[in-house]
Design a protein around this nucleic acid. Sequence first.
DNA 1: CATGATTACTTGAATGTTCAACTAATAAGC
DNA 2: GCTTATTAGTTGAACATTCAAGTAATCATG
Lengths: 174, 174
Amino acid sequence: MAPHTETRWLNDNEQRAWRAYLVATEKLYQKIDRELQQNSGMPHAYYMILAMLSEAPGNGLKISELADVLTSSVSRLSHALTKLETLGWIRKDADPSDKRVSYACLTDEGLRVLVEAAPGHVRTVASNMFDRLTEQQVEQLYEISAAILSAVAPEEIPELTLRPVKGDDATARP
Amino acid sequence: MAPHTETRWLNDNEQRAWRAYLVATEKLYQKIDRELQQNSGMPHAYYMILAMLSEAPGNGLKISELADVLTSSVSRLSHALTKLETLGWIRKDADPSDKRVSYACLTDEGLRVLVEAAPGHVRTVASNMFDRLTEQQVEQLYEISAAILSAVAPEEIPELTLRPVKGDDATARP
DNA sequence: CATGATTACTTGAATGTTCAACTAATAAGC
DNA sequence: GCTTATTAGTTGAACATTCAAGTAATCATG
């Protein structure tokens, strides 16, 4: 532990916000994960893999790029892709120009599963989050998240990560 | 999948906010977990157990109450407490008046570990989150979280969960 | 006060995540 | 071009979390 001359603490408002954020996020994640697990047999992390692939040109992405978009370690993703491959929801294509590289590609079956999972998932997100927020609060949440991102991921280009990219769930819109 | 007459989707602003929130939260959690794991040998979930116990009268809580405060399943907590007990950071005390009940209690060693972990943890939270937010945004984050909580945990009494309870990390303040 | 229901917690198996070590292929330096 | 370094991805072990099933004590009821 590096010694510091003075220790930073949170003031009462920060405390309160931090606690509320933690509990709200925890419960929201639990709801999202349970809904997806029950209705579509996958956790949110796997849903996101399918969603990101569905957005990519040709429904495929380099594994390392996919990991980047997902904020996932390559190792975690590799394990997940193994599982998704046995489920037949994705496929791995080799890159002929660089034999180290693999592309993860959504299969027809994977797309079907995603399209079927999407409405329930979006309903969960909307009813537990956006239906309770004003337009202003949605904007505020974006700004707050962007501010946090500037600290936790300074290298990221905001445009890439944060602009409305037809993201996540909207992806599977028919 | 229950049939719905019309499917809810997210509009562009909601999309953008949702994506940003997801990525920011993911990266923030990764930073917090890595810092705690490296400097104190425990994940954030375990830190929270110690922190909540340290706030309780007598440094102990009924296991089911602790699970509630932590937004954790009893099973998850039970596994975690087993680990923490072997580490010597908590102890389980039986309730003489109801033999089904156990109290989880912070040991002196557990408190020592928590006090040592706290400054680094708070520094991580502050530098990656609160140092980037205005006072207004801190207030907004609280309101947004409270709104989400009203959906995901309608049974919770806001006062209990959300008031500045000397929470989390502040706990370990000497 | 005996039986059935409920509550409190534990356990084990299955799944997911992390970390460090590994393989294989390409790039860089000399 | 040969060696070394870097990059892409995989793997296995350790750990964490979930879910369902199990144990044990207390409560509720008739």
